[in-house]
Amino acid sequence: MYNKTTSAYFLKFGKITDSFRTNKDLKKKKFKVTNKVISTLYAYSQDVYVETVDGMAIVAIADKDNSYIPQLFVIHRNFKIYAGEYFSFITLTSSSTINLYTPTNTTRTTLDASSPIIYEPIQPKLMVSEICAYYYMVKSPGYKFYGESHRYFELTFVDSGELETNVEGTDYTLKNYDLLLYGPNQYHTQEITSNEPCSYLTIIFESNIQDYSSIINRVFHCPREYYQILDKFVKMTTSPLPYAKDLMISFIQELILHLLQYDLEEHITKPSTPIHQHFENELLEEILAYINQKIYEPLPVDDICDHFSISRSSLQNLFKDNLKVAPKQYINEAKLAKSKVLIKKSENTISEISSMLGFNSIHYFSRKFTHRYNITPSEYAKKIYDDQ
């Protein structure tokens, strides 16, 4: 984060002023700045004045009190630099035009920087150029996909059940909230060997990832942050918003960037108050486990508050801060996700599933299901039957 020339930190080297405009003894030199790297700085025997005409630039000033280490300031407004301070300019934009006002009898000296001063523009290193396909599937026990390879990346995320996959001769097991990325041209198979259905999301995309060796051939267990990214991706797949597809691409880019630095992120100290955050994490995990245990019952938010001796507002804040959803919405989402698994099992009617999960009526359940998944429960059951 750069300071500006209007900040208090700059007062050591100069100050904001327009006084040069009325000083007829100054001579003006107009020059164009195109460099992003500088190795030489300049100092004048008298105060000099700087005016930006076009573009955006940084002034680098050697700190004499700190081994001449350069301090960088984004130029904001006109300013003067005190006599004897070594400085130079780096453009932030493609080029910048600067007026430098100097006294007629001033002298200039130079200083070679101990190492080049470099401005690194903020530009993306990774791009997802296209999402080729995406689908959410619920597969029954005994399902087996005999394998394929293609030139794209393929992401598989399991949100319920277990999925066995073989990648070029190596077996992996994906459980709840596990994710695996297949690299281009990696031959892979998938099957379900457990006695429970498995639901999972697959996204196939094209990207310019250069070194992906650290994110293939391994199973990632997704923290809540990653799950929330995927949840936002899924919501955008049915959104009528004009930039929904752009958001889908940005979410996948965000997730891949997290995976590329996954091992580093695990060691970053996240909260500024770790004891409080640790307490919140443990409490939230207990509440989520409780919701899962009570999934087949009506579960008012007040019941959760009573069980965990927590106020309604505290519970709301806990969910909003960590999951970005309200408790009631999370409960509904959990019940709807469970209903998809039960429909897949084909052991109960839609009406029975609605009742089992504590919905007030089949009509209410059907309306919620349709709103969430853009398909009615009956149509979903028929689609599963047709796919088998």
Rank of each mutant, 00 (worst) to 15 (best):
T5W: 01
S7C: 04
F10Y: 08
K12A: 09
K12T: 11
I16E: 12
T17C: 01
T17P: 02
L26S: 01
K30N: 14
V33Y: 04
V33W: 05
N35G: 12
I38V: 08
Y44T: 03
D54H: 15
G55A: 04
M56V: 11
A57R: 06
V59K: 03
V59F: 06
K64I: 13
I69A: 15
P70Q: 11
L72K: 14
I75S: 06
F79G: 05
I81Y: 01
A83P: 03
A83M: 03
G84V: 00
Y86Q: 03
F87P: 10
F87G: 06
S88T: 03
I90D: 03
T91R: 09
T91K: 06
L92P: 02
S94V: 13
N99G: 04
L100K: 08
Y101W: 08
T106V: 09
T107G: 10
R108K: 13
T110Q: 13
D112A: 13
S115E: 09
S115M: 10
I122D: 08
I122H: 02
I131T: 03
Y136F: 10
K139D: 10
G142W: 08
G147P: 09
S149Y: 13
E154W: 02
F157D: 01
E162P: 09
E164K: 14
G169F: 02
L174D: 03
G183Y: 06
P184L: 01
L201T: 01
F205W: 02
I209Y: 00
Q210V: 11
Y212H: 08
Y212Q: 01
S213M: 05
S214C: 08
H221G: 00
P223C: 10
P223R: 11
R224W: 09
E225P: 02
K235D: 07
P240G: 08
L241F: 12
P242H: 12
A244K: 10
K245L: 10
K245Y: 10
D246V: 04
F251A: 11
I252T: 03
L257A: 05
L260P: 04
Q261L: 13
D263I: 00
E266A: 12
H267Q: 12
H267W: 08
P271D: 04
I275Y: 12
I275N: 13
H276R: 15
H276W: 14
Q277R: 15
F279T: 11
K294A: 06
K294F: 06
K294Q: 12
D302Q: 12
R312H: 15
R312V: 11
S313A: 15
S314M: 13
Q316E: 14
N317D: 06
D321G: 02
A326D: 07
Q329L: 07
Y330I: 03
I331Q: 00
A334D: 07
K335W: 00
E347S: 15
N348Q: 15
S351T: 13
S366D: 06
F369Q: 03
F369S: 00
H371D: 12
Y373N: 00
P377D: 08
S378R: 12
